[in-house]
Design a protein around this nucleic acid. Sequence first.
DNA 1: TTGACATGCAACCATTTGGTTGCCTATTAT
DNA 2: ATAATAGGCAACCAAATGGTTGCATGTCAA
Lengths: 104, 104
Amino acid sequence: MDDVFKALADASRRALLDRLHARNGQTLTDLCDGLAMTRQAVTKHLAILEAANLVATVRHGREKLHYLNPVPIHQIGERWIRKFERGRLAALGELKRKLEERDE
Amino acid sequence: MDDVFKALADASRRALLDRLHARNGQTLTDLCDGLAMTRQAVTKHLAILEAANLVATVRHGREKLHYLNPVPIHQIGERWIRKFERGRLAALGELKRKLEERDE
DNA sequence: TTGACATGCAACCATTTGGTTGCCTATTAT
DNA sequence: ATAATAGGCAACCAAATGGTTGCATGTCAA
């Protein structure tokens, strides 16, 4: 789970996931296209995404196809974000109240 | 948005949010209690959470009370995670299919 | 008023991170 | 066969990160 959060912390990596979301199964050079980064930098980002299980790859001859795995993202939504949504309105009300105590 | 992802990337900070979720409005020393970190380290983490707008504070005499702000977490769920949930099953099917091409 | 308590500030440190360059290997197309 | 293409590996680098220690300040209680 920590791997996933860490992987998602970087904007370049989120952009790569966005690209795969737009078009799945791209090669490394596809994914490099138009980015202000060397291929090696992208390779490293993809390795981190792969380690976090956010991306799966298939070798196909000399190219490597990258596929988005949405499961870990979904799990963060389920296991982590939802927790904070329960009691969200209550927390907000309390927060507002306490912030206004300032002016008393 | 990037601030929020970065803030959530650290397990210690997520633990602090968990603590505030369990009991809102804790002071700095409350939050330090039982953690294997100096007070100053916790201060820095809280500053990052505050900068990301995940925590709001109220000074109350010599103590500083910390309140969880659940809005940014909710926004990540809405604006980012949901995007990847649309077409999630489709992506998974495709992923499975491509991974199995390996064995052809 | 004076000591204890809650927090703030700043300098410093090691490690991690995000990136680079240079070169090597494997596969495909001519 | 050979050149071009797709990717891999490793060393290196600067900056950010997560942590520390030491000291200063503000507030409360005896």
